[in-house]
Simulated scan of single mutants.
Amino acid sequence: MHPNELLRDLLKPGQRRIHFKSESDSRRRQILSSMCALDVRVSVWVVKQRPDKEARLLSLGALAEEAVRAGAAQLIIERDESLERADRRLIADAIRRFGSSEMQYRHVAPHEHPLLWVSDAVAWCYSNGGDWIRRADAIVESRVTRL
């Protein structure tokens, strides 16, 4: 079964998506355990001592650069209409600078692409720290910290 289908199976009746901040701790543990059993890996970009807007630009720029260099076919980003135009410019710039016009990128609503729930869960774990980071480690392939 495809990871998207397995993730959709975790939804409660009436739920359109998994949003980690809205779940109870016991449900978070259950969801994270299921996610860690999937054949998915994430990279975590941590930006310290910067305002959120600047941290987003640094993180997304690094992500786009890494995706282009790795030969990724597509990059899917959770839609935030207030940031979408700036995101598109940043990604297009990375594609131009690192020489791949073949990578496709798009913004989608979280309920449209369940793999976004995995990145949401890992981001939540990293921002809450402690044992949550340990629980997410099984799917974290790499960590990049920028100051």
Rank of each mutant, 00 (worst) to 15 (best):
D9H: 08
E66V: 10
L57P: 00
G61L: 09
S22M: 08
S24R: 04
V68R: 02
R69Q: 13
R27Y: 01
R85M: 12
L11P: 06
D80Q: 15
P13G: 03
D9K: 14
A55H: 08
R28L: 12
A86D: 15
E84I: 09
S59Y: 01
V46Q: 06
R85S: 13
S59A: 14
W45G: 04
E81H: 11
E78Y: 12
P13V: 03
D39W: 07
R41S: 03
M35V: 11
Q15G: 03
S59V: 02
R50Y: 05
R50W: 11
L38A: 00
I76T: 15
C36W: 01
A72Q: 11
E66L: 03
V44L: 14
Q30E: 10
M35N: 05
L11E: 00
S24V: 01
S43I: 06
V47M: 07
R17I: 01
V46S: 00
V68K: 13
K21T: 14
L60Q: 06
L32G: 08
A62D: 04
S82A: 12
L58Y: 08
I91M: 02
R8W: 05
F20C: 04
L10H: 02
C36H: 04
E66H: 11
S24H: 04
L75S: 15
P51H: 05
I18L: 13
I91H: 09
R16M: 04
L57T: 00
S43A: 10
D87A: 12
R56F: 06
A64I: 00
L58F: 03
S34W: 05
R85P: 05
Q30I: 07
V40R: 09
R79G: 06
K21S: 14
G71F: 11
A70M: 10
A64L: 08
D9T: 06
G14I: 02
G71R: 08
D39H: 09
P51N: 05
V44C: 12
I76K: 12
D80G: 15
R27S: 01
D39L: 11
L32N: 07
A86H: 05
A72V: 13
W45N: 01
R89M: 13
L10W: 03
D25H: 14
P13T: 09
E65I: 02
A62F: 05
A70Q: 13
V47W: 10
A37G: 08
A37F: 08
K48A: 07
A72W: 04
R69F: 06
P51S: 07
R79E: 13
A62L: 10
A55P: 05
S26K: 09
L90G: 03
A62E: 02
Q15K: 09
P51W: 00
V44M: 09
E23S: 00
V46D: 01
L32M: 12
A55D: 01
V42A: 06
E23L: 15
A70K: 15
L58C: 08
F20M: 13
R89S: 13
